[in-house]
Nucleic acid binder design. Structure first.
Length: 809
RNA sequence: GCCGAUGUGGCGGAAUUGGCAGACGCACCAGACUCAAAAUCUGGCGGUGGCAACAUCGUAUGGGUUCAAGUCCCAUCAUCGGCACCA
């Protein structure tokens, strides 16, 4: 009698059983393997099938490691501070902690449907005071080391809404909400000195088993460049202008200088005749947003009326102001070599400034320059002593030459900026600092942590650009921990990144109220061996987490410098645009979200898991198609019947079944190891089809069925566990060892190989695998028969692959 | 503009790294079972020509290397992503 495959019954049964008897336990003898998911923001929308993809991949990998006898650390938590909950609170008056708790509950239910082996005892929530106590503690340690500091910073400011704006909230220089022109305003901000770690963050990338793409993005984000600073004296004054350049070899070609309008000397250098124009330009620039400045590449500028002296050749060069020079990169001033830089060229053309070529292709000057000559190498001309030198060599040597000549020095520069760390929001960690008139910014004593986020009546911004916390007088007003005088608390909160920069450390010791993580736990379980998540965090979260870990290493909390040894970025799951058929991001507004809940009900968790993998290469984006699930479900049903109908066939182990079994192990293992998870699923299907054929006349032995079940277990745990028990086992399938293949058993004596005539396949023959060339070619010729004509020029034989006869005429 | 990824049937995608292109799945077509449908099973399924064996073209486009190219080299186009006045 055949028992039908009933996913509902099986999945319910085993989920309950695994809850009672966890399959992944630390018995003290196993080695650890830490497999981590990027923890989600508990959004009110719940999960869609795209979230599942990463979770399924990490769970498959975790279970695979379990079957290699590792104790797998596979935790889950909540990155629960953030704007949506706060906006929801403003709109509906529900406290963020209430809506967050509801969302967590719902998403936790959904995640449990995946039947991943998450250890909920390790759960963390960044909004939990016992968690953010340590987020605040890290901030205090950074403050003590001088890595957290306050600075007045120009930020985007809407004078109508009286609030600071992010760059993204400025559209064409106007406030996104009210349409007013956005200006710049200096606001005092908390900063983290991530730039102090720039070199380590850059150098240590090399040792990471991460996608090259992500490493490259971080490298470019850090943006280290090598060059020189050169001092240009200002003609007729004691001032000097220091510029940063990566091309000191072109110093003879510098025909003007440009300062950023925000440069401290900008106003000072204005001559009487130019003063009005200069001040106007500086003012006009201050009105433009940085977004606006970046988009508009038409060069603008104003002459200051002053000149600088080129320290190398004494040439007098005009000093200009222009907003194409960035105030916060390098020194905020540049020397301009219009002959060899596109931007300088455009500027010189527009304002009619001389252009002097100093690098040439062949020693000769270009007669009519229509664009900058930007070739990396060439012969120096018009460059005094440097004439005739190779520019790429000079570029390397010039910084030291300049240093020796005494008007500059060799230096490096970074694009990486210090991290603006304060937010004028409610729903974040309070910054544990007290401002005292006498003592300045004073850190809260550690024993007063956590500094609890107080309840407020209104989450609405106060209108002063401060956090709503500023309105709570009895919270703001306190006494100085240092001198006891009346003082005020810092009212800005931390960004969402603060909690997510170190959460992976806390999982393994989440109840410790004495330490962030104990030495013993850290030694036993950290760092993360495999980190799985979307590529959208390539620079932000992954850079911050590396920075935090390096800092915690420096103060002795952990003994490793890199948090994530290996990183895997899964692709997005997209919906299909109904009209164009193109892939589109799943979003609520497009109404193309596919919820896993219905699918689990109709097809089961095992089917959904397999389909998430089968949908395409895991690292690429893919398009969801409900119909694909049918194929997976059919496969599982077929396999179910293969095992249940044929387990008692009593078929002996044959060479054929042995070969089939070993090939199956080989295919699944090698593809899984190389993360080709979509083809693992097709391997299962292929072998299943073959075994079904073999089973028709009773050629499938029980060991082969059992092996298949073991291999399938990390992918489709419920059906595998059920079938494993049906095959007579009492223990969980996850206590079993991952099958090992025997290469010899996989081999066949004969191979089907193509016989080609002039590179085109004309026949297929079966021939002994180890046949020698003579034998093989003879067989090949025989198979070709009278197709073979002309003179044979060449005979190629690749054993087991191909025979190619090349004939002429 | 710069950097990177991708481009293969009606669709999602395979291809042992230079060796029979289209595995596996979806969709579709035909047949079996059925009063019928669903489910299931069996077979077919890149284009063109042919009753057929077979021939011929075919992996974005154009060239090249090779006995042999989806795979390597050169150029071009398209789509997506990252960076974007970084001196």
């Amino acid at each position: 009698m055949t028992v039908p495959y009933n996913h509902k019954v099986i999945e319910k049964k085993w989920r309950e059983e695994w809850e009672k008897h966890p399959v992944n336990v630390d018995d003290g003898t196993k080695e650890k393997y830490y497999c981590l998911d990027m923890f989600p923001y508990p959004s009110g929308n719940g999960l869609h099938v795209g979230h599942w993809r990463g979770y399924v991949i990490s769970d498959v990998w975790s279970r695979y490691k379990m079957m290699h006898n590792y104790y797998v650390i596979h935790p889950m938590g909540w990155d629960a501070f953030g704007l949506p909950a706060e906006n929801y609170a403003i709109k509906n008056g529900v406290h963020p902690s209430v809506s967050t708790a509801e969302n967590v509950k719902n998403i936790k239910r959904q995640i449990n449907e995946i039947s991943a082996i998450y250890d909920w005892d390790m759960e963390v929530n960044t909004t939990d005071p016992s968690y953010y106590k340590w987020t605040q503690w890290i901030f205090l340690q950074m403050f003590k080391k001088g890595l957290a500091y306050e600075k007045e910073m120009p930020i985007n400011w809407c004078p109508s809404c009286k609030t600071g704006l992010a760059n993204e909230e400025v559209v064409n220089g106007k406030c996104e909400r009210c349409g007013a022109d956005v200006t710049k305003k200096n606001l005092k901000q908390w900063m983290l000195k991530i730039t102090a770690y720039a070199d380590r963050l850059l150098d240590d990338l090399e040792q990471l088993d991460w996608p090259e793409k992500v490493k490259k993005m971080q490298t470019e984000w850090i943006g280290k460049s090598y060059g020189a600073e050169v001092d240009f004296p200002v003609d007729g004054s004691g001032e000097k202008i220091t510029v940063y350049t990566t091309r000191p070899d072109t110093l003879h070609g510098a025909t003007f200088m440009v300062l950023a309008p925000e440069h401290e000397l900008a106003k000072k250098l204005a001559s009487d005749a130019q003063r009005e124009a200069v001040e106007d330009y500086i003012y006009q620039t201050s009105l433009r947003s940085s977004v606006d400045r970046m988009q508009d590449k038409e060069k603008t500028g104003v002459f200051t009326g002053s000149y600088a002296v080129n320290p190398l050749n004494g040439a007098k060069v005009p000093i200009w102001l222009s907003d194409y020079v960035l105030a916060d990169y390098g020194t905020g001033a540049i020397m301009c070599v219009p002959a060899h830089d596109d931007r300088d060229f455009a500027f010189a053309k527009k304002f009619d400034i001389p252009i002097v070529q100093v690098i040439s292709k062949d020693g000769n000057e270009i007669e009519e320059m229509t664009e900058a000559y930007t070739e990396a190498s060439g012969i120096m001309i018009n460059s005094g002593d440097w004439n005739g030198m190779e520019s790429s060599v000079l570029k390397r040597e010039a910084p030291e030459m300049i240093e020796k000549m005494g008007f500059g020095r060799k230096t490096t520069n970074y694009k990486l900026r210090d991290w603006v760390f304060s937010r004028q929001r409610y729903w974040g960690e309070p910054i544990p600092i007290v401002h005292c008139k006498n003592c300045g910014a004073v850190p809260l004593p550690e024993e007063e942590l956590p500094l609890l986020l107080p309840e407020v009546d209104s989450y609405q911004p106060t209108g002063t650009g401060e956090s709503p916390l500023a309105a709570i007088d009895d919270w703001v007003n306190t006494t100085c921990p240092c001198c006891g005088a009346p003082a005020k608390r810092e009212t800005n909160t931390m960004p969402q990144w603060a909690g997510s920069s170190w959460y992976f450390l806390r999982y393994v010791d989440n109840k410790n109220d004495k330490e962030l993580v104990s030495k013993e736990k850290a030694d036993a379980y950290l760092p993360v061996d495999m980190y799985i998540g979307g590529v959208e965090h390539a620079v932000l979260h992954l850079l911050y987490a590396r920075f935090y870990t390096k800092f915690l290493y420096d103060i002795g909390v952990v003994d490793f410098e890199e948090p994530f040894r290996r990183l895997f970025n899964q692709g997005m799951v997209c919906g299909r645009d109904k009209e164009t058929g193109a892939a589109t991001k799943m979003s609520k507004s497009l109404g193309n979200i596919v919820s896993p809940d219905d699918i689990v009900r109709d097809y089961g968790c095992d089917s959904l898991r397999l389909y998430e993998l089968f949908i395409g290469p895991p690292e690429l984006d893919s398009i969801w198609d409900d119909r694909g699930l049918e194929g997976i479900y059919r496969f599982l049903t077929k396999f179910w019947h293969l095992v249940t109908d044929h387990k008692d066939d009593g078929a002996p182990e044959s060479r054929e079944s042995l070969r089939e079994r070993n090939r199956l192990i080989y295919d699944v293992t090698t593809r899984l190891e190389s993360f080709s998870l979509n083809t693992v699923v097709s391997a299962f299907m292929e072998h299943n089809n073959r075994l079904c054929d073999m089973a028709k006349d009773g050629r499938v032995d029980q060991k082969t069925l059992e092996t298949f079940v073991l291999l399938l277990a990390p992918f489709a745990p419920h059906i595998s566990e059920e079938l494993y028990h049906i095959l007579g086992h009492e223990e969980t399938v996850f206590a079993a060892a991952w099958p090992v293949y025997d290469e010899k058993a996989m081999e066949e004596d004969e191979a089907e190989i193509a016989v080609q005539l002039n590179g085109k396949t004309r026949a297929v023959i079966r021939i002994a695998k180890d046949a020698d060339k003579e034998e093989a070619v003879a067989a090949g010729k025989a198979a070709l028969g009278d197709k073979l004509s002309g003179t044979i020029v060449k005979e190629i034989y690749v054993p087991g692959r191909i025979i190619n006869i090349v004939a002429k005429g």
